[in-house]
């Protein structure tokens, strides 16, 4: 007994220690970046370096916003929001079809969705560029949103289909008996109950759309359409080794996503586990 609780305590300690190491390793660069972005230029390169800024300044943030970071931020917001709306809109319906109907070729569609998920984005760049160029949507937000949606729909459909299957089918039947069509039942009963699944799927999409660099840099060419990651890349060329503005831009790009995750994380966990257990 004593031995058991002793080893149990030890295990908990080890697990806690491991968690701390992972958290520090993950968050320290962000913290270091945030601190550095608040230091005056001459303090950034001083030796030995100090962790906390001696004097706090927002000059680097002013610099990047003057250089057009606000536009990039808006572009990123627009593209991310558009992608989420399209992915969840199409994904919610497609997943419902797969979760609740039997039709010829259903298995083939499911397998195809998995297969598509495993294709690396890099190998899709040239074909999608050609396609988007063909229909005249290069250097437009619509084009970028469509490409992002195409890349992200498989995972969205997969998560939502698994989530729907975890709901009792009698709820939809009940709604249909109560005088609602199938689509109304989906809208009034299934979707409100699938909120954790929708949020989990939505977060996947947002993370991809917000962080993507490769696709955006391929499809977008003008200053006006640029999203944040490309904007930051251009700061790198423009300011050379000027760490202040560079890190300020990184923070502007990182922090919104962190905030979204912190707010929605409990739904995210529920959405992921629910889908995986029952699906």
């Amino acid at each position: 007994m004593i031995f058991e609780s002793h080893s149990g305590l030890l295990r908990r300690l080890l697990r806690g220690l491991l968690s701390v190491i992972i958290v520090v390793a993950a968050l320290f660069p962000i913290f270091w970046g945030l601190m550095t972005s608040l230091k005056p230029t001459r303090d950034i390169v001083q030796f030995p370096p100090s962790l906390l800024p001696a004097t706090v300044t927002f000059e680097h943030y002013v610099t990047i916003f003057k250089a057009g970071a606000f536009g990039f931020l808006l572009n990123s917001l627009l593209v991310s929001a558009g992608t989420v709306v399209i992915c969840l809109g199409i994904g919610a319906l497609a997943a419902y079809g797969l979760a609740r109907f039997e039709f010829p070729g259903k298995r083939a569609v499911m397998v195809a969705i998995i297969a598509v998920m495993s294709i690396p984005v890099a190998s899709l760049l040239i074909p999608t560029y050609t396609l988007i160029a063909e229909i005249g949507l290069v250097n437009t937000h619509i084009g970028l949103i469509l490409v992002y949606s195409a890349y992200q729909l498989p995972i969205v459909i997969w998560i939502l289909a698994a989530y729907y299957q975890s709901l009792p089918i009698e709820l939809e039947w009940s709604a249909m008996m109560d005088g609602y069509s199938r689509l109304q039942a989906l809208w009034k009963v299934v979707l409100p109950l699938s909120r954790p699944g929708l949020i989990a799927a939505g977060l996947f999409v947002v993370v991809f759309a917000w962080n993507d660099f490769v696709v955006a840099v391929t499809l977008l060419s003008s200053e006006e359409t640029r999203t944040l990651p490309i904007g930051i890349y251009n700061f790198l060329g423009f300011y050379g080794r000027e760490w202040g503005p560079l890190l300020a831009a990184s923070m502007v790009s990182t922090i919104p996503l962190l905030v979204v995750f912190v707010i929605l994380q409990r739904y995210f966990m529920a959405g992921m586990t629910n889908g995986s257990v029952k699906g």
Binding site: E170, M177, D178
Partner: peptide, 20 residues
Amino acid sequence: LSPDRRGIAMVFQNYALYPH
């Protein structure tokens, strides 16, 4: 006819009350 057009009501074994 689809269920919503048959003018019938049903009580399910698990009641199927809308939890939200």
